[in-house]
Design a protein around this nucleic acid. Structure first.
Lengths: 372, 372
DNA sequence: ATCACATCAGTAAGCGATTACCGGCCAGAA
DNA sequence: TTCTGGCCGGTAATCGCTTACTGATGTGAT
């Protein structure tokens, strides 16, 4: 009778058979080792090339690998080692060129570093980032890059900071891309550009052209990016001793539609008074505004000048080509990965911030105001 | 002396210390089990909810999980279980809306199924897909979705077929999206649309409008998508008993630039004779052509009608809005994931193909030919 | 000939889950 | 009261790889 007394059973058992339907399982280091007549340690060393192995032995192992069609199991490797060679990136929507280019940069740099990219999208769901970070933490991504936007809500920022600490304890890092730092004591990398400066520069350019009444469209009040751009807009006026007409600041979600509708509406009901130029908070908004202006019979730039922000390809393709602030989006993505890689190893350092440069690109959608 | 004779050492050793710098490691099932006073098996059961656990026990475990801030280790889970809850997708370039929308569909469906998405890009590198599939095989992605294009080279197709078999042996599946099947005996799912039919439909529409000389621009000869579209183009002529002027078929890489330059050139040197309409192999090509036509002083659609293919948002946004063939891109991405999920489990079945419908969307870039 | 070093290989202890089996307990049946 | 199940929970074997230690060998120095 199979009834051991006292301590529970401990005798040998029928071997488990986990894989049921699968055919011939794929080769393991074990099998490669046998085929090459060496130990698994040696196989691993040949595979990773991080330990001296005699040329002849190496050859035998490589031969066995080829013969068996061996492919390493990344999960097992990650479990035994301490990295997954994976980076996670969280964007709002991959279709939006702003996020798309950054994601592309992240991906390219990751590929060059031999890493794979886990791409996640929030589709604008509030707090979506939080859950996605948790998922990426489960996956033990070597780094998690969160792109764009950034809500200013303190409670939310605290939750994000908690995630940053958690990731840091796991030995990986949170990197904010296109978003200001959370706080000085939060372990997170930051790759950002100077929104205030960019908005200031392009606004100043318009003011320099003689325009005084500039309509600013777009950006949600709780977004840090928006706040910074509006701040730059105001500062440009202030530094010339001019006043901003508050009615000309029209927030809203970044979108082409917003640019179109808001412009058309203001043109129609005149509730904000006249305006000689439009500053779209991003290129999409600006293009939408251009369409509304054109439909209203206004010429660009003769009657109204228009500028955007970001410099996505669309800006150069529309007619007239859009004057805008150039952002090195792809470069930022790459930088984010590099920063994450550099940070790895350093445990629990403070926030490390890198700024990328921006500049105004003057095209055909702007012209000097007619002499009054 | 620690010098056992005969057989190599086998006595106890100083415990290894793999994690060097890292601070307090993150909690494991082991620790949760101890905290809750149960076994790891029970913890796992509570976590996965796939085995009955007494309500009280469950509560204790959940409490422990919360207290310790436990997060499951996906790698360990994947190693012990047999799935990674991950799908890989290979596109040419995420910035291209064609790929972008499909990727978005894949991602959304994957997210709904509780999976994460590994996004890889080839950037047009020949054979890039092959290496990427290998990487995804290392990662043991539950499914690998390859999007678009598709080279007709037999040797290449054979290599792809090998990968499909390998993936299938691993217990996962290769799914081709927007590309025809490889061969009947290759275990791969396919989600495709009817290129020939779509091209036929829109060409027929133009012919029905009275246009006879239609310039077809775009598509590389070795791409299956291109071949199918051209086939539809020819068939439309054939079914009306008309002849195609071969000089009007102008292949080239799908791009806005191609549409622009090729059109401008033909307009200039007249080497292909006159044409009354332009069929861009995709919307980008068509938009490029529109620009060239406009710069040549031709009116659209009064002087020349223009049509595209894919129906990316750009098609509806340009002026005049582009008549094109609508492809349910995002839907296709979703379908690809669903197919992969459905396929999983079935071992080594034959190719399973699903077709999605397409239809012509008539906008403002086309008009009847003037009565001659 | 002896010894201190390099060099290269092997042993086996984890990494952190999942899950096949086994068995304790308790209620209702006989 | 003794059995027969149904519920639950524990034990421990794996999954496939990396790597700290230990050992065996060959070499030049002494």
């Amino acid at each position: 009778m199979p009834t051991p007394q006292g301590k529970p059973a401990r005798a040998s058992r029928a071997p488990r058979t986990p894989r049921d339907g699968a055919g011939p399982k794929r080769a393991t280091v074990q099998e490669v080792a046998e085929a090459a007549g060496v130990s698994t340690a040696t196989v691993s060393r040949v595979l990773n090339g991080n330990y001296p192995v005699a040329a002849d032995t190496r050859r035998r192992v490589e031969q066995a690998v080829r013969t068996l069609g061996y492919v390493v199991n990344a999960q097992a490797r990650a479990l035994a080692g301490s990295r997954t060679r994976t980076v996670g990136i969280i964007v709002e929507d991959i279709i939006d060129p702003f996020f798309g280019f950054i994601a592309r940069g992240v991906q390219r740099q990751a590929a060059e570093d031999g890493k794979l990219c886990l791409v996640c999208s929030t589709y604008g769901v509030a707090g979506g980032e939080l859950d996605l970070i948790d998922s990426l933490r489960e996956q033990r991504a070597d780094a998690v890059i969160v792109v764009g936007g950034g809500v200013e809500d303190p409670a939310y920022r605290r939750k994000l900071a908690d995630r940053a600490h958690a990731l840091n304890q796991d030995g990986s890092w949170l990197v904010l891309c296109g978003r200001p730092p959370l706080a000085a004591d939060v372990p997170a990398g930051v790759v950002d550009y100077d929104n205030t400066g960019g908005a200031h520069a392009i606004t100043d350019y318009l003011l320099g052209q003689g325009h005084r009444r500039i309509l600013y469209i777009g950006g949600l009040d709780q977004m840090s990016v928006h706040r910074a751009r509006v701040a730059g807009f105001r500062r440009a006026y202030a530094s010339r001793g001019l006043e901003v007409d508050e009615r000309l600041i029209q927030p809203g979600p970044f979108s082409r539609r917003l640019g179109y509708e808001r412009t058309a509406q203001l043109l129609r009901d005149g509730s904000a008074g006249q305006f000689a130029a439009v500053f779209g908070a991003n290129d999409g908004v600006a293009v939408g505004a251009m369409q509304a202006l054109r439909e209203a019979g206004l010429r660009i730039p003769q009657d109204v000048s228009v500028v955007g922000y970001d410099d996505i390809p669309l800006a150069a393709e529309v007619t007239p080509a859009l004057t805008t602030v150039h952002l090195p989006l792809e470069q930022m993505g790459r930088e984010a990965v590099r920063l994450a890689v550099a940070l790895r190893g350093e445990s629990d350092g403070p926030t490390d911030t890198r700024h990328v440069g921006t500049h105004v690109v003057i095209r055909d959608s702007t012209a000097p105001a007619p002499a009054s």
